[in-house]
């Protein structure tokens, strides 16, 4: 519980502004709104599929602001050459969902 969320405040601000620009409904973004953004990263679709699996923590097919931050974090790390983990490490789980 005391582990700080690995998504830094300045990154969250960036991800939040992207989130808001995608016109969330009820604070949620559906898969068809998030998909083109992730595809824009040019990462392989199987990698993006895993990013989605890890980000959609409640598996409702939509991402809230915290889940979206996780997705964007993983995409940015992948673009820097870091492998996308097979399961979400505890520091990456948003504090609101522990």
């Amino acid at each position: 519980v005391d582990i700080p969320w690995v998504v830094k405040p300045e990154e969250r601000m960036k991800f939040d502004s992207i989130f808001d620009s995608l016109c969330p409904v009820g604070g949620m973004l559906t898969g068809d709104k998030v998909k083109p953004v992730l595809l824009n990263s040019k990462l392989p679709v199987d990698i993006l599929g895993r990013v989605w699996e890890l980000s959609d923590l409640d598996r409702d097919g939509m991402l809230d602001k915290d889940e979206f931050s996780v997705a964007m974090y993983l995409v940015y790390r992948a673009l820097e050459g870091e492998p996308v983990p097979m399961s979400l490490p505890p520091p990456l789980v948003p504090p609101s969902k522990r």
Binding site: D32, G49, W52, E53, D56
Partner: peptide
């Protein structure tokens, strides 16, 4: 290949 839950919720599958 992906964790349980099948994933009709995953837009990339």
């Amino acid at each position: 290949q992906y964790p349980a839950g099948g994933s009709s919720t995953n837009p990339f599958l």
